[in-house]
């Protein structure tokens, strides 16, 4: 396995968290807890921070090979749902005229190519995507600033404690479950590595909360609930002197990159676990076999979001109750 650097892990985790938040959808949170979603996110981030500090400092132990088999069906469900949502996102926002199967096949082949090159390729790509994402975010923030109306964010406490608690729990699940992938990185984290992970966590959640505030200030609660992708709808308002406009497809690239990385790292993990269990010698065969399974699974079965949340729960439990470096 390739060695990856501490900051690369942080960058990858940023995209994984952002992608999971995007897949669940801001409007799913707001339909539950309204404007108090922001409160739920802040509280969820704080609780997640303490949970992360606690789990990063725990002792190591090795998990038996047989128990890895349990993870595989959950990972298959998890990745099928992500593939389904990614292709739906592409057909809704970018190319509505291309068939699902063609897009899914193209996407899977791209992921297979990336995974075959190794974990190092995925993490290096993540760093490049981070620079792209920051650049695009800065442009959109500057151009959208005149359109922000922060009175749309108020009143903040417009939901009951139970509704806020529900959103908080799901946000926590989405925030901490990506750290499950720490289990697949070969070496143990040193103190410096742990510090970088924690810093990465803080920056990720500052970004997510800030982005949510921007979306609220531009669209307001009612339009967030109405649009299937409110995160993308705000890009339609980006306009500068009638020269820079109609560029929402380009700006939505940040979300596509996050989805790609989420799927790629999950695919890598699943492939790695499968090879430990199934005796397939040739890597190309196992990669294409796995891609085919996911292709047919995502196309044939319409998985509900609740099943996806259960898979996140399994990831979270695995992270909380096992070692950080399972696979040697």
């Amino acid at each position: 396995m390739n060695r990856i650097k501490n900051y690369e892990i942080s960058v990858l985790l940023f995209f994984l968290t952002q992608s999971q938040f995007f897949i669940y959808g801001l409007n799913s949170f707001t339909k539950e807890s309204g404007r108090a979603t922001i409160i739920a996110m802040i509280l969820g981030s704080i609780i997640g921070f303490f949970l992360l500090k606690l789990t990063l400092s725990k002792k190591y132990f090795t998990l038996k090979k047989k128990s890895l088999f349990l993870l595989i069906p959950f990972l298959v469900l998890h990745l099928s749902y992500i593939l389904n949502q990614t292709i739906h996102f592409i057909t809704y926002n970018v190319v509505s005229t291309i068939s699902y199967y063609l897009l899914a096949a193209a996407f899977l082949l791209l992921v297979v190519f990336c995974v075959k090159r190794g974990l190092k390729t995925i993490t290096r790509s993540a760093f490049i995507y981070l620079i792209t994402s920051i650049f695009l975010f800065c442009i959109t923030f500057l151009l959208l600033f005149p359109k922000m109306d922060f009175s749309n964010v108020l009143p903040l406490m417009d939901s009951s404690t139970f509704e806020i608690g529900k959103s908080l729990f799901i946000y926590l699940l989405i925030s901490i479950s990506p750290y499950f992938y720490l289990s697949i990185f070969e070496r143990k984290l040193d103190k410096e590595g742990e510090k970088r992970i924690v810093r990465g966590y803080i920056l990720t959640h500052i970004f997510l909360i800030f982005n949510t505030l921007i979306i609220f200030s531009i669209l307001g609660l009612e339009l967030i609930n109405l649009y299937p992708y409110p995160e993308i709808s705000i890009f339609k308002k980006v306009s500068f002197l009638n020269v820079i406009d109609r560029m929402e497809t380009i700006f939505s690239l940040t979300y596509f990159l996050a989805l790609f990385l989420q799927f790629a790292i999950g695919f890598y993990t699943l492939h790695f676990l499968m090879r430990r269990i199934l005796p397939i010698k040739k890597e190309e065969v196992s990669l294409l076999l796995l891609a085919t399974i996911l292709f047919f699974f995502s196309a044939s079965f319409s998985l509900s979001r609740n099943i996806w949340l259960v898979t996140l729960g399994v990831h979270l439990l695995f992270y909380l109750f096992t070692s950080k470096s399972v696979i040697h």
Partner: peptide, 16 residues
């Protein structure tokens, strides 16, 4: 050849 095909097919050029 495969990558070139990927470039053209999924980007909506077919339905231009």
């Amino acid at each position: 050849i495969f990558l070139l095909c990927l470039l053209f097919l999924p980007t909506g050029c077919l339905h231009y």
